[in-house]
Design a protein around this nucleic acid. Sequence first.
DNA 1: TATTGTTATACTCTATAACTATA
DNA 2: TATAGTTATAGAGTATAACAATA
Lengths: 139, 139
Amino acid sequence: MAEMELAELLFLVSRRLRHGYLHRLVPLGLNPGQARALRALADAGRPLRMVRLADELRIVPRSLTPVVDALEEAGLVRREVDPANRRSTLLVLTPEGRKTAERARDARRQAGEELFAVLSGAQREQLGELLGLVDAQFS
Amino acid sequence: MAEMELAELLFLVSRRLRHGYLHRLVPLGLNPGQARALRALADAGRPLRMVRLADELRIVPRSLTPVVDALEEAGLVRREVDPANRRSTLLVLTPEGRKTAERARDARRQAGEELFAVLSGAQREQLGELLGLVDAQFS
DNA sequence: TATTGTTATACTCTATAACTATA
DNA sequence: TATAGTTATAGAGTATAACAATA
């Protein structure tokens, strides 16, 4: 019974987060998946291969393809052939992509702020620890 | 920074929950949305109108239509004209629908059990309280 | 006029399977 | 034969807009 409520709450709260994030990303011309990929690329601090980024995002490479298509078309990312292995594509952040990644980061921070506004700092930390435990058991 | 990690964790954990639930629902011939609607209907303990159920699920009525279509085709739910207001459709659970709702409930309980397995009872309660606070601020 | 529900359309997120190019 | 990525296809979940029937 308690687990069921927990599952339902988790679902509702995460959907709410997605909505808040989504609205803030509209002005950037990004959807959450694109923003997440862009951010991961910025976090890496260096070009990543498709397989590597997909792994980072925990999706299959095929699912990453349209995401990167959109980012490339928007001039935020460049696909380059990996000189070390010509089967591989290196994803390179453009200067514009780097700027947009920062704005996406702000959007996510704001969405998080809004969602977790009722929680104190200590409570947020607690929540982060509990979710971290749950997530870690699969990694 | 902490909020960002929290947001990301929430996203990852809820996606994991969805996957676990999804797999357990396959044998029932349901997807999570259908199962959720069926469960809400069973929880209500009486026929509900479309608008009312949509509200309960926090989606727009239009999004509920294909869900109910599927449930009706599977013989789990019947659409009846509301005698009190002929614009309205009453959603009535069939006996088979009631049984399936129970099985869906078990599936969800198991998916929750699996996901939150690493947490103690006290930790689950804590997590439920924190998520409840977050959710309540919008209700 | 306002409400209930549906038809039509579209976008996001993700998956599997089959294929191409390269190793 | 194995790996990296793409083409093709599909299904879940959700939305907005326009419309018909009813109130």
